[in-house]
């Protein structure tokens, strides 16, 4: 299997390996598009484990994770959910944006995330014990937090936590070049633009430009679109709906990247 590229920020790769070896679940927090999912994919390939990713949403119930009975041609069949499969096969189960899921999800997570490492399947009457290879990884974005949706302390405290932030300049330039094959000058300027936009965090913008958006912009520019068109589509319009804010952002693009 080829290893999906990942540019480490510090010692997170080592930390993840240690957590896996010690059978500890991991919580990754950080804004959108800074490489949380990429990191988990990379680590799964590196440790040679199957990966089961679930993007959580507000209608996701415990049954969606654990599994359910289905009717197939007059027969009812039990279908494992991604969490159950990860436990049975000994892989990594990655719950992306876990705070979005319904509250009953915590019920199935808790016994898996502490020393018990078990998954009770209420409907089939099984009690699965997780093999040593199994690992639970959850992520969430603290920026979105409102008072209704937050991670409960009892859930948080079962995990080893990693914080992901925007990459520093040199690292982000390397990431852009590797992901898009763009030249160093364009990468440097796009990163400068990203950092200029990040200064607007919380004041003019709710969310600021992620590395992913910079990668999108670089890809569009590389494939031949004019700089301003590419940035408008990949960055500006993705970040704000307010016409006055986008006018200001457009001037930033012209200032950093030129016409």
């Amino acid at each position: 299997m080829t290893l999906p590229p990942y540019e480490p920020a510090s010692d997170e790769v080592e930390l993840f390996e240690h957590a896996w070896r010690n059978r500890l679940p991991v919580l990754i927090k950080g804004p959108t598009g800074v490489g949380k999912t990429r990191f988990v994919t990379h680590m799964a390939a590196r440790l040679d484990l199957p990966l089961f990713s679930v993007a959580c949403h507000d209608d996701l119930t415990a049954a969606d994770l654990v599994g359910r009975h289905l009717v197939q041609g007059g027969q009812t069949v039990w279908q494992d959910g991604p969490l159950t499969r990860a436990v049975r096969e000994g892989g990594i189960c990655y719950l992306d944006e876990v705070v979005e899921a319904r509250k009953d999800v915590t019920v199935v997570i808790h016994p898996l995330a502490d020393h018990r490492r078990t998954l009770p399947l209420e409907r089939t009457g099984e009690l699965l014990a997780a093999p040593p290879e199994f690992m639970l990884v959850v992520s969430y974005n603290p920026g979105y937090q409102n008072f209704l949706k937050g991670l409960k302390p009892s859930t948080r405290q079962r995990f080893v936590a990693l914080r992901f932030g925007f990459p520093d300049e040199a690292r982000e330039i390397r990431i852009l070049q590797r992901e898009t094959g763009c030249d160093a000058l364009l990468a440097r300027r796009l990163v400068a633009l990203g950092n200029a936009i990040r200064r607007l965090d919380g004041v003019d913008l709710e969310e600021v430009a992620s590395t992913r958006l910079l990668v999108y912009a670089a890809l569009l520019i590389r494939s031949g679109l004019p700089v301003l068109t590419a940035c408008r589509a990949a960055l500006i319009e993705a970040l704000s709906d307010d016409a006055e804010v986008t006018a200001g952002l457009e001037e930033l693009v012209r200032t950093v990247l030129g016409e």
Partner: peptide, 17 residues
């Protein structure tokens, strides 16, 4: 007509927020 775009721009290029 430019007040808001200007202040976005100003903060982006490193002006005091």
């Amino acid at each position: 007509s430019l007040r808001r775009p200007l202040s976005v721009f100003f903060r982006g290029v490193g002006g005091e927020a």
